[in-house]
Write a protein that binds this DNA or RNA. Sequence first.
DNA 1: TCTGGGGTCCTAGGACCC
DNA 2: TCTGGGGTCCTAGGACCC
Length: 419
Amino acid sequence: MFALVDCNNFYASCERVFRPDLNGKPVVVLSNNDGCVIARSNEAKAVGIPMGAPAFEYEKLFKENNVQVFSANFALYGDMSQRVMNILSEYTPEMEIYSIDECFLKLQGFEHFNLNDYGKHMCDKVVKWTGIPISVGIAPTKALSKVANRIAKKYAKQTGGVYIIDSDEKRIKALKWLKIDDVWGIGRQHSTRLKAIGIKTAYDFTQLDDLFVKKQLAIVGLRLKHDLQGIATLDLETAQPKKNIATTRSFESNYTEFEQLRERVSTFAVSCGEKLRQQNSCCNSLMVFIHTNGHRKDFPQYSRNIVVKLPFATNSSIELSKFSVQALKLIFKPGYAYKKAGVIVQDFTPANHIQQTLFEYRDERHVPLMQAIDRMNAIFGQQKIRLASQDPKRVWKMKQEKLSPQYTTNLSDIITIRL
DNA sequence: TCTGGGGTCCTAGGACCC
DNA sequence: TCTGGGGTCCTAGGACCC
């Protein structure tokens, strides 16, 4: 059996842990730049705030319903996630952390356990130790555990947060209940096409012919179909080093000058360098992109990206910054109002066996220099040591008007308790 | 005024090889 | 008149996830 454990309204719940006065009240968390809604408490969902709602369009609704609004506080969410995952890792040796708020637990050899009690135990322990409410779905396959989790969450009162699919009757009932749009792995495109031929539920989907599914949804869709039929096709996936690393941001305002973009691109490249060094990789190529605000049809639009093959593999922030800015020069066009840019590094090789090049000079002194910078930043704070090409004052330049304290990761933000 | 960020996998088609 | 067959690798684009 597999369990899929999912934190309820994760970001909103994290904010509530340190603001218990907000329990029972509508809470939303906004994306970077306070752009759109990326998490909602049940109360916020109930007053009709959709996922992805642009914050400026919903300001009135927020006020009318006394919705508590927070800027994204990823330092807090990342730390809370680790705490939750640590607790869950004690329930089985086989675990896959699937996202910041979800994990799969493989329950092999648990035949003599009462899995419902086991799931309830997880819920109680996680909420007691972290304050985060979770839901647990248990079933013979990963895709079915996702379905079970949905039921556990939707009918939290009746299920107590745990639902198990352990018979074919329960499986079929669950699949007939689940709309095709809500199936894990069926996105907008596929669900539109499936609905056009009369497939309304997950159950309908499992009744389709294998060859047809393979033709329409490729091998991924066929695997999903089998998994939903109860034939375990998807197994736990072990954490692999990343194949791409990106740092991209929208700007708080429109940038028209090359110099503004140059500074941002340099900062993004430095950030990619840090992430590369964390996983011990060097990249052999990188992409830089810039574009104007696609939502504003009244502005002249421009959007371009460029991929640069590097002369040698590197994870040096200095080299990455240099190559990224060179790339930016090739695609920058004056006269446009730029809203977003990004650097994506790709084509990795492990940092400990770098192919030496014959004609290009790779400065090996960067290796200890980067180590020193990383250590200093770890001690003194993120990006305290920067390149001169970066803005000396601000790093991300984001609009974050409703940012909560870093309760769990910054000693000066720790809560005070009065007795 | 204002609309996020970061990933994965698969496939088709082109370039190239013998 | 008449132009093969079987591969691999790479990339862009499309789909999906949170």
